[in-house]
Amino acid sequence: MTQTLCVASVPAGHPYIDRALAAPIGSPVQVRVLPDPQPVGAPAGQWWPPAIVASGWINSHRADADLLHLHFGLESFTVDELVAAVDAAHDAGWPVVYTVHDLENPQLVDQAPHVRQLDALLPLVDAVVTLTPGAAREIAERWGRTALVLPHPRLLPNDVEPPRGLAHDLPVIGVHLKDLRPSVDGAATVRILLGTLDLLRDRGVNATGEVRLQRRVRDDEQREQIRFLCAERSDVVLIEHNRLDDEALAEDLAHLDVCVLPYHSGTHSGWLELCWDLGVAVAVPDVGYLREQHDDQATIAGFSREGLDGDRVESLAGAIARLLDSAPKPGSEARHDLAVRRLEERTTTDEMTARAHADLYSDLLAERS
């Protein structure tokens, strides 16, 4: 007999939730996720700030779900509001699960409010989940909680053929700075990238750079620095654009030989997961537990974000050179075959992750019955 559980997820309308909770047909426990309630004044399709956490929502919808699962998007709320939401869930008979995606919140400059949220929530919730063993160790050390480690699911939709990208004469090294949120080391990453292209050229490796930036950014001064840095370079193109939809983003990433992640802080990276789905090589800064998300030296290479610019250039140049030697090229059958193979592997691991979530929910509800 199939058991169906209804989860109030914060948020619901996000690819991570779609993939991580979608138990396969035939599973003894099926999970249904409530759609995101419409925040007051928000446009259609916007889930933030999550109305489920807002005062009174859980009390008014206690019959609509079996469990509360917190993921991210909580920075709009005070610690007292989050504690009140967990207390309301418990009063309604709902267990509460918290997946710690971020030990450092990428949306915040000052991490103190996020740490206060973690300090309040982690002792209070019924179960803790995270994405990597390193994050689980840190959670155990700081809060004494044992976190269930479940890997990030695929981000490329199931019904989408992996884009092949286009072959080109010179390797393209790209960096996406998006809207320059606080965790992005925008101008510094561009400066190091330019130095890296020079160093690679001196060593006989000619490559071009591509810097992408959204038209609406959070730091106008830093955008001007980036424009200035790119303006005089014939080997670098700066592309400013509106926010890309998922299909356009995948197409754009697929034509890169190497994608450089521009973070100076953080814990995990969904961007890394999308590159993994596409078979795109990634240069990863030594931030958080990004390197633990996938163990593959052919398409993932680490570089240091510490030290003087010369040291950082040397480290990034070494990472890119290794990736250019080992990773399949855009437009090649090898790249396409790698992406297809990885997505097939993801089907299995994502089913395991969904089943693990369903089992966790079922166990927690049994404990409260």
Rank of each mutant, 00 (worst) to 15 (best):
S269Y: 01
P330M: 06
I300R: 14
G318C: 07
V284A: 07
E306G: 03
G310C: 09
D296M: 00
L316K: 10
W271G: 01
G302E: 13
H294A: 10
L308N: 09
T267Y: 00
D309P: 11
D337N: 15
R335Y: 03
I300H: 12
D277Y: 07
I320V: 15
G310R: 15
A319D: 06
L290C: 08
Y289L: 04
L290E: 05
R335S: 10
E273Y: 00
G307T: 09
K329P: 01
H268Y: 05
P330C: 03
S326Y: 03
D337M: 10
S304V: 06
L323G: 01
R312A: 07
A281F: 09
L324Q: 11
W276K: 00
L278S: 02
T299L: 11
G279R: 02
L324G: 07
H336G: 02
L308F: 09
G318L: 04
D309Y: 08
E292I: 05
S265G: 05
P330D: 04
I320P: 04
E306D: 14
L272V: 02
L290W: 04
A327M: 06
R305W: 02
W271K: 00
G331R: 13
D277C: 11
V284M: 04
C275S: 10
D286Q: 12
T299D: 09
W276Y: 12
T267E: 04
D325I: 07
W276E: 07
V280C: 05
T267A: 05
W276T: 13
G331D: 08
T299F: 06
V313A: 09
R322S: 15
G279M: 05
G331A: 11
W271Q: 08
D286I: 00
T267D: 12
G279Y: 04
Y289W: 09
R291W: 00
A334P: 01
K329A: 13
A301M: 06
E314M: 11
A319C: 02
G307D: 05
